Simulated scan of single mutants.
Amino acid sequence: MGYRKFNNQAYAATKWVSENGSAIGVDGSRLAVAGNSLGGNMSTVVAQMAKEKMGPKLVFQLLLWPLVDSDTNRMSY
Protein backbone atom coordinates (compact mmCIF):
# COMPACT_ATOMS: atom_id res chain seq x y z
CA MET A 1 0.00 0.00 0.00
CA GLY A 2 1.06 3.60 -0.49
CA TYR A 3 0.33 4.64 3.09
CA ARG A 4 3.95 4.71 4.24
CA LYS A 5 4.40 8.26 2.94
CA PHE A 6 1.30 9.46 4.81
CA ASN A 7 2.37 7.69 8.01
CA ASN A 8 5.81 9.30 7.80
CA GLN A 9 4.19 12.70 7.26
CA ALA A 10 1.84 12.17 10.21
CA TYR A 11 4.79 11.22 12.42
CA ALA A 12 6.78 14.23 11.21
CA ALA A 13 3.84 16.54 12.01
CA THR A 14 3.48 15.02 15.47
CA LYS A 15 7.19 15.44 16.10
CA TRP A 16 7.09 19.03 14.86
CA VAL A 17 4.24 19.88 17.25
CA SER A 18 6.13 18.29 20.15
CA GLU A 19 9.17 20.44 19.39
CA ASN A 20 7.38 23.66 18.38
CA GLY A 21 4.09 23.54 20.25
CA SER A 22 4.61 26.89 21.93
CA ALA A 23 4.69 28.55 18.49
CA ILE A 24 1.10 27.49 17.92
CA GLY A 25 -0.11 27.81 21.51
CA VAL A 26 -0.08 24.18 22.62
CA ASP A 27 1.91 22.19 25.16
CA GLY A 28 4.10 19.95 23.02
CA SER A 29 4.87 17.73 25.99
CA ARG A 30 1.23 16.62 26.34
CA LEU A 31 0.32 15.16 22.95
CA ALA A 32 -2.34 12.67 21.98
CA VAL A 33 -3.08 10.96 18.69
CA ALA A 34 -6.56 9.98 17.58
CA GLY A 35 -8.40 8.84 14.51
CA ASN A 36 -11.14 6.70 13.09
CA SER A 37 -10.97 4.12 10.32
CA LEU A 38 -7.82 4.88 8.30
CA GLY A 39 -7.03 7.71 10.73
CA GLY A 40 -7.05 5.13 13.51
CA ASN A 41 -4.49 3.16 11.54
CA MET A 42 -2.33 6.24 11.12
CA SER A 43 -2.61 7.05 14.83
CA THR A 44 -1.51 3.51 15.63
CA VAL A 45 1.50 3.80 13.33
CA VAL A 46 2.45 7.23 14.69
CA ALA A 47 2.35 5.83 18.24
CA GLN A 48 4.49 2.86 17.21
CA MET A 49 6.98 5.11 15.42
CA ALA A 50 7.19 7.42 18.44
CA LYS A 51 7.95 4.44 20.66
CA GLU A 52 10.58 3.02 18.28
CA LYS A 53 12.26 6.39 17.76
CA MET A 54 12.11 7.28 21.47
CA GLY A 55 9.86 10.28 20.92
CA PRO A 56 7.87 12.28 20.92
CA LYS A 57 6.20 11.09 24.10
CA LEU A 58 2.47 10.61 23.65
CA VAL A 59 0.17 10.76 26.66
CA PHE A 60 -2.99 9.37 25.04
CA GLN A 61 -4.20 7.45 22.03
CA LEU A 62 -7.82 7.22 20.90
CA LEU A 63 -8.73 4.76 18.16
CA LEU A 64 -12.28 4.69 16.80
CA TRP A 65 -12.90 1.77 14.46
CA PRO A 66 -9.27 1.58 13.42
CA LEU A 67 -8.43 -0.15 10.18
CA VAL A 68 -5.53 -2.29 11.42
CA ASP A 69 -5.94 -5.46 9.37
CA SER A 70 -5.77 -5.57 5.58
CA ASP A 71 -7.68 -8.88 5.36
CA THR A 72 -10.97 -7.76 3.79
CA ASN A 73 -12.43 -11.28 3.94
CA ARG A 74 -13.13 -11.10 7.68
CA MET A 75 -16.76 -10.66 8.75
CA SER A 76 -15.81 -7.69 10.94
CA TYR A 77 -14.53 -5.81 7.90
Rank of each mutant, 00 (worst) to 15 (best):
Y3D: 07
S22A: 12
E52S: 15
S22D: 11
M54W: 03
Q48M: 10
V68G: 00
S29M: 01
M75F: 10
K57E: 07
K57W: 08
S18H: 11
V26N: 05
L38I: 10
A34I: 11
S37Q: 01
A32D: 06
V45H: 08
W16D: 07
G35T: 02
R30A: 14
V33S: 15
W16Y: 07
S76G: 02
A47E: 01
D27Y: 04
G21R: 10
G55S: 09
V46Q: 03
R4D: 11
A47V: 09
V17K: 14
E52V: 14
I24Q: 08
D71E: 13
S76W: 05
M75N: 09
S76R: 10
V33W: 10
K57D: 13
V68Q: 07
S29N: 13
P56S: 13
R74S: 08
V26G: 07
N36H: 02
T14P: 11
A50F: 15
L31W: 03
V17S: 02
F6R: 06
T14D: 06
V59L: 11
Q9T: 05
A12M: 05
V17C: 05
Y3L: 10
F6T: 12
M75H: 00
S29K: 11
N41T: 00
L31K: 12
N8E: 14
E52Q: 14
Y3K: 02
W65M: 07
V46E: 13
M49I: 14
K53F: 15
M1F: 11
S22T: 14
L38W: 00
A10L: 02
Q9G: 04
P66T: 05
K5A: 12
L38K: 09
V17F: 12
G2F: 09
N8P: 00
L38C: 07
V33I: 09
P66L: 06
M42K: 01
E52W: 04
F6Q: 12
G2Q: 07
R4L: 10
G2H: 06
A23T: 13
K5F: 12
G40Y: 07
S18V: 08
Q48A: 12
S37N: 09
V46T: 14
L67G: 06
A10H: 03
L38T: 14
M49E: 13
L64S: 12
R4G: 11
K57Q: 13
A32C: 06
W16Q: 03
M42T: 13
N20L: 07
N41W: 05
Y77A: 01
P56N: 06
A10Y: 03
L67E: 02
V59P: 05
V26I: 14
T44D: 02
S70R: 00
S22L: 04
M42A: 05
S29L: 01
S76I: 13
L64N: 12
K57N: 11
R30F: 00
N7A: 13
T14V: 06
V33D: 01
V59N: 10
S37F: 02
T44K: 01
P66A: 00
G40C: 09
S18K: 05
G25P: 12
N7L: 03
G40R: 06
A10K: 00
G28A: 06
L31D: 10
Y77Q: 04
S18Y: 10
D71F: 01
Y77M: 15
G28M: 09
Q61G: 15
G39A: 09
L63V: 10
L58E: 14
P56D: 15
T44E: 04
S70N: 08
N20F: 05
L63W: 13
G25Q: 10
N73Q: 14
Q9V: 02
L63P: 01
L63M: 12
